[in-house]
Design a protein around this nucleic acid. Structure first.
Lengths: 231, 231
DNA sequence: CCTTTTATCGGACGCTCGTACGGTATCATC
DNA sequence: GATGATACCGTACGAGCGTCCGATAAAAGG
């Protein structure tokens, strides 16, 4: 009794993995249960299982869906902007907004997965490490563009900046979840702006949680020293 | 057949919770199993269970033991230093060293627990939130002392600085675990130094992973702008 | 020395988990 | 419209889980 047209297995899988990302953002990828997931999408346990063949494959597929969601919600809105500082600034806002809107009810899916599997060797950790590496490379590329455009101090370490932005976004996610206080997001936004040397940037429709930012403050490139080897 | 003197229940609990912190840093507090823990400390499942009465109480006790370990390994070594910037700088180093030495085989216990329970209401989350709040308050108090001593820019936002340091330390933990690359720790150290406006501070026995820091570089207080409300 | 307390053990329970396999109704195709 | 493929279901299994309880033996106390 299939309710959908034939060859719809990919679509069914998508339905399941989407529900799984929501669930895993709260309970973790290991906390996923095939039975619970089946209830949520109104299928039988055996059906969901046979869609993936094993729990690990379900987790891998869920990771993929989570990454896709992140790309859609965070990166896509800024993809068309000019590379470099403008896109980086906008990216920080869509990023924090992704947390504020609770697209994932348990906070950033990737952060949860990273901390959950960082010390457990296996295909899951490999996939997560690869994903995080790619994301940090995106941030670094963007930072490099900003440096070359003269929007950041020329001695800025792009990799360090990427590391910082990622650390701040992750902390915003679990801090916001832990205390359910939007001030955490405002805090993260200020810290990101500071890391980007643009902490007095005028309001541009970013996180609503940030109260009373002065509307007319000027943009100002701030100095930022690199880690110098042997200088 | 008790092997220890009477009233040794507290000590036995300590043995179990210590093993539990190690295990939980890898598998998470929810990933703890009473049977597995019993095997590790060479007891029977029913014995371990009766020590705590429920898995949740075991988790709470484990959290307490993890906090105690953190205090012992990270805070104690710097407790006698002068409050303010000197202690903050030393603290960052013991903190990162705590990760590098892998005192917890799965990385920072508190970070793991935070991300695991940030979206799951209950006694565990409450206890974790309280713990994190206290730790951030310690960092903020230290930052405030540094500001009042004139070692940081007077308009530094102490709470933001505490948030940043904590975010960087956490990212160092899971990044180091994920890639098993000490460069992550060096990256975190540079970022922490930068956040503290002391990114050219001379080497002081901190993380070994940081290569080639210039030995004679000068300390220099860096400018750092606060978030200004309506100025 | 006998009794009470205490710490641990052995065994069992009900439940949920991932996994497996055969059945069944629908769809695509000739 | 018979046939084969497809997507889902029903049921079952063995293992592992947290939890409970009665037994047991060492320690403590009189």
């Amino acid at each position: 009794m299939p309710r959908r047209s034939a060859a719809a297995v990919a679509q069914t899988r998508a339905v399941v993995t989407e529900a799984a990302t929501q669930r895993a953002s709260v309970e973790g990828l290991e906390g996923l249960t095939i039975g619970g997931l089946a209830d949520e999408v109104e299928m039988r346990k055996s059906s969901v299982f046979s869609l993936f063949g094993s729990k690990e494959d379900l987790q891998l597929a869920t990771l993929g869906a989570g990454v896709e969601s992140f790309r859609r919600e965070v990166w896509s809105p800024v993809a068309d902007l000019e590379p470099g500082l403008p896109r980086l600034l906008a990216l920080c806002d869509t990023w924090l907004d992704y947390h504020r809107r609770e697209v994932m009810p348990g906070g950033c899916f990737l952060t949860t997965a990273t901390v959950e599997f960082d010390a457990r060797p296996g295909p899951l950790r490999d996939a997560i490490a690869e994903t995080m590496k790619r994301w940090l490379a995106v941030l670094e590329r963007e930072a490099t563009a900003a440096i070359e455009a003269g929007d950041l101090q020329p001695d800025t370490n792009a990799a360090d900046l990427a590391f910082e932005l990622n650390a701040l976004a992750a902390a915003a996610s679990y801090g916001f979840q832990l205390w359910r206080d939007p001030e955490v997001l405002a805090q993260a936004r200020r810290s990101m702006r500071r890391a980007l040397g643009a902490d007095m940037n005028p309001g541009d429709g970013g996180t609503d949680a940030d109260p009373g930012r002065p509307p007319g403050a000027r943009h100002r490139v701030r100095r930022r020293r690199d880690h110098r080897r042997g200088v």
